[in-house]
Nucleic acid binder design. Structure first.
Length: 290
DNA sequence: CACCATGTTCCTTG
DNA sequence: CCAAGGAACATGGT
């Protein structure tokens, strides 16, 4: 789930549910996800604090909180890693197997669940300083993008995953943006002519914008279909949203990602899968030539 | 058992 | 100092 669009949709969903609510207790079931913050410090800072805002930066969630008694505002940083989910559930509900952190809000719990525990919920905010521009904001410029790409001999697909070049693009949308721009994922970043950089700049923004718009209307099963237990889910309750063999609207809207061997929707050629920096890249060998 | 998975960080090498 | 490559992290699906 978690590239920029999914995190953005989650932030928009959670913001009104959390704002104004006060944390009454903190339960850390997997200390690794809060590091380097200690459990004691997380508790002392968060218990009694009230959510004032929730924003997104790249793939990160930024929870703004006001502690009790005039203390300075604090920021809590969240990252979903590969498999993280965040949602509210009734305080008397059963916690999911891989629940990592629970923030008790009274009648409900705010739950951070993460099967692989690659995600984060921490008071350490310094990861943000390494991030490049927000692709949908004015600080992401064609000239700045071109300048960053000029410094690298790596394939453009690999460079798109570099969060210091542009924040929030992940493995799915990197392939999708290159398909849309009709650029080969293998081209060395520094060899892209400015006209092509501009095409890619537009494609990155379009792909992300469309995914946010789509996610805001269709695929999120907030109400939960997991047996009427009243959970608020992010994603499909049965997890089927991620299988290529059980395609749903999420996968159907992707043009190349996870479509190896299937026909290109533009030209009919078979979509190819290659490995770059140990990650899969999907592209159309006919539409995306060097 | 093998390989794959939406991500980041740390370590090494050049 | 920097760019680049690879392993590690941890669990589950196919």
């Amino acid at each position: 789930m978690p590239e920029l669009p999914e995190v953005e949709v989650l932030a928009r969903h959670l913001a009104p549910l959390l704002t104004g609510r006060t944390i009454q207790d903190v339960e850390v079931r997997r200390p690794r996800v809060i590091r380097p913050t200690s459990e004691r410090r997380l508790r002392s800072v968060l218990v009694g604090a009230r959510f004032t805002a929730l924003t997104r930066r790249g793939k990160y969630l930024l929870f703004a909180l006001k502690p009790e008694g005039g203390q300075p505002a604090v920021s809590l940083l969240g990252h979903l890693g590969m498999t993280g989910r965040m949602y509210l559930q009734p305080a008397d509900g059963r916690l999911a197997k891989h629940t990592a952190v629970v923030l008790c809000l009274g009648r409900e719990n705010f739950v951070f669940e993460d099967t692989r525990y690659f995600g984060r919920l921490t008071l350490d905010v310094k990861a943000l300083s390494a991030l490049g521009p927000e692709p949908l904001n004015a600080d992401f410029t064609v000239t700045g993008f071109a300048a960053a790409l000029k410094r690298s001999a790596q394939p453009i697909k690999v460079k798109l995953l570099d969060q210091s070049v542009v924040a929030g693009v992940g493995n799915i949308y990197a392939s999708e943006a290159l398909f849309r721009a009709r650029l080969s994922p293998r081209t060395a970043a520094r060899r892209l002519a400015v006209s092509r950089v501009e095409r890619l700049w537009n494609s990155v923004r379009e792909v992300l914008t469309e995914a946010i718009a789509f996610g805001s209307t269709v695929p999120m099963d907030w109400g939960g279909t997991g047996g009427g237990d009243g959970l608020f889910y992010y994603g499909r309750a049965d997890g089927s949203a991620r299988s290529n063999s059980t395609p749903d609207s999420y996968y159907e809207r992707l043009r190349v990602y996870d479509r190896e061997g299937r026909p290109c929707e533009r030209c009919g050629a078979r979509i190819k899968r290659i490995v770059q920096s140990a990650r899969s890249t999907f592209y159309c060998p006919r539409c995306q030539k060097m």
